[in-house]
Design a protein around this nucleic acid. Structure first.
Lengths: 234, 234
DNA sequence: TTTTTTCTGTTCGCTATCGCACACAACGCC
DNA sequence: GGCGTTGTGTGCGATAGCGAACAGAAAAAA
């Protein structure tokens, strides 16, 4: 697998000093993540860490009687497997590929070696871990207080930012799991947004038509999380 | 301030090797935390880290238009200020003393020194950070899916475990902020629990009467978070 | 083209929670 | 003991979201 075949767009990797990055490179393996693949299962060992380039991965908690609830969304700005950086080898959440694309991955054992070796890598990852905690926290509040429509808008915008495209593939059923509501709730909310000409969709394909006004329709959590990531440089 | 006046019951500190602990001790200062005190404000610098003994501190996110929402509860099993361990000097949340009691505190600068020096301390704190992330995640799901009554029960049990007492002081108004609901919602839920003889309360004082059945009335999140902390040894 | 699968839209009654407003009761202080 | 403060109980209509079931439409497969 030729590493240079895939452009490395991941911000965490990109922000490393040249030397540290060069050291990391041989252990990194480009992979294509396919929509719907499960990368981590709760309570299962973490085999690889992933640094998404243009792929998108959701962190989900499972609650009995419900299918899922998204607590975090990870794209080029982050990584999967921060647990390892905290000395824990098992994932507390499910990680589900939500947008196909490429990522760099590394075996956990190798990652731990590099992690111990490179202070710059440690610093970047701890910084990102903090941003992720903040994101989870904000999501918790958002899920409690905001209506489905605003949360849907937020989700679409966050996805857009990470895949850098106005159109992406996903079903209302899937969205319902992310938001922790029934599919009907998504149908209703999406219908409203479509009426306002903010988005359009047809069978598993959603397109953002009017980003600006979509931001107006969504809750402030979007801005808050965005600022957080920008401030912390990830 | 004589350090030996306060028995150090904090699990994080207690689990350190003797030598590491001895090194830490001179920097630790016993303090009494008073109910209602705010220790951290969102986006403000962290001046001290705290290791609660028998005190209890809530982590709250603020959402415009709502007073608060608790995302984490910290007692003897943990610490305040994990952000520092991740290289970030500002708190993303508000920290509010929820149960009066003692804690050990340390200046942030001093803490950073010790943190860099002691691998055992680092490991403990990273481990706890992971448990805290899991707790926040679980809380997020719980706030989304479970009814007020179950969440109230969970909250009371978690508090009980941390202060090691069946009775504690708090108002329904306060509980409402924690749970992110109106006070009326708490009145109703608490009323139901009292009718079932699981708790009793009078003006700011709540007492758990029947712990066993209170566990039955609460959501499984209680057990999940508890197991998580126990497994990770905190 | 026909058939099958997958995705979307709609309807129904029901419940938890909201927002607001007001009455009352306990405690603490003078 | 009286009085203000603080905490608790109640009642009202409004509404967002639930659970379940079914109909239709678009895409994929045969």
């Amino acid at each position: 697998m030729a590493t240079n075949k895939v452009p490395i767009a991941n911000s965490l990797l990109a922000s490393l000093p040249y030397k540290d990055f060069q050291h990391l490179l041989p252990g990194l393996e480009p992979v294509t993540l396919i929509f719907g693949t499960t990368l981590y299962e709760p309570a299962a060992a973490i085999k690889y860490v992933y640094f998404p380039n243009d792929s998108l991965v959701s962190l989900l908690t499972l609650v009995e009687g419900h299918l899922a609830l998204e607590v975090g969304l990870i794209g080029r700005e982050g990584m999967l497997g921060v647990s390892l950086a905290l000395g824990i080898g098992i994932s507390p959440v499910r990680a589900l590929v939500q947008g196909s694309g490429t990522a760099m991955r590394m075996k956990s054992s190798r990652f731990m070696l590099e992690f111990r070796r490179s202070p710059a890598l440690r610093q970047e990852i701890y910084r990102y871990t903090h941003a992720l905690m903040a994101q989870i926290t904000q999501t918790a509040a958002c899920n409690r207080f905001h209506v489905v429509e605003a949360r849907l808008a937020r989700w679409l915008l966050m996805t857009r930012d990470r895949v850098r495209s106005d159109e992406f593939r996903l079903t209302q059923e899937f969205l319902a799991h992310m938001l922790g509501v029934r599919r009907v709730g998504v149908t209703k909310a999406a219908g409203t947004l479509q009426q306002q000409k903010l988005i359009s969709y047809r069978r598993g394909r959603i397109r953002i038509l009017d980003r600006k006004n979509l931001e107006a329709a969504c809750c402030p959590c979007y801005e808050i999380v965005k600022d957080m990531h920008e401030k912390s440089g990830t």
